[in-house]
Structures are given as structure tokens and as C-alpha cells.
Amino acid sequence: MKLSIQVNEGPYNHEASVTALNYTKAALEAGHEIFRVFFYHDGVNNGTRYTTPPQDDMHIANSWSELADKHGLDLVVCVAAAQRRGIVDEGEQERNGKDGNNIAPGFRISGLGQLIEAGIQSERLVVFGD
């Protein structure tokens, strides 16, 4: 089945992003196709490479990046939500005159149209959040 995932909560504060990560892994292992993972609301905070959790804790951002690398996942961070919360890629850095960027490998910043398209193109859109 062709699935898309929406992640609405940030890492650590809320279990939703880890549940989404585990669900995505399980779906891929079961042979399903993941059309896109879309990060919205505080979920955009999953996409910064600047997170440095303690070594005995799970590294959620890296886990997403590794999964994306392994399976060619399309990890999309909502641009409007990202701008509010300081998630920046090279393009946004240039556009908004920031002194750096923090997007994690495998993630890209794009518009809400990507979420709507995911809803149209996928057989199921699975939403993780409160």
C-alpha cells in the first residue's frame, strides 16, 4: 500500500515522532511504499541536525536521516512552520538572511502543497500527534 505520514509533534517532548518513526520502519519492512513523510507544527523540530541528545538516549533526528538514506524517503519539513521555529536550509538561509542553517541530512523544506499532494497520491495518510 502507498502510505504517507504526517508528524505533528517535536522529538523528546512527545512520543508521536518516535511512534511515527517506528511505524514508518515497520511499514517499509512489511513491503509498503512510503510516498512522503511530512513534518508539521512542532514536528519540524525533528529535522534539525543540531540536536545532541545524551549518548544513552535515542537520536531521533539521526534515525530519520538514516532511514531516509536507506530507503530513499522523502522527508519534507513545512516551510511556514519551519520559519516560525527556526529550521533553516541553505535556500531559507539565503532568502531570510540567516547566519547559518540546521536542516538534517535527508530532509528538505517545502510548502504545504506537498502535504495535500501526499493526501491525494497516497492510499492512506497516517497522522501522528495529539
Binding site: H41, G111, L112, G113, I116, I120, D130
Partner: peptide, 19 residues
């Protein structure tokens, strides 16, 4: 919380997709 406002943003963008 910001859920209501960011939901409305999705609705407004989504309206262009003629669903």
C-alpha cells in the same frame, strides 16, 4: 496552542487543489 491556526493554513493552501 498553534494547531487551530496552522490547520487553517493547510485548509487555505489545500483549497487550491480542487478537492
Amino acid at each position: 496552542t498553534i494547531y487551530a491556526w496552522e490547520s487553517l493554513e493547510v485548509v487555505l493552501i489545500g483549497a487550491a487543489f480542487e478537492q
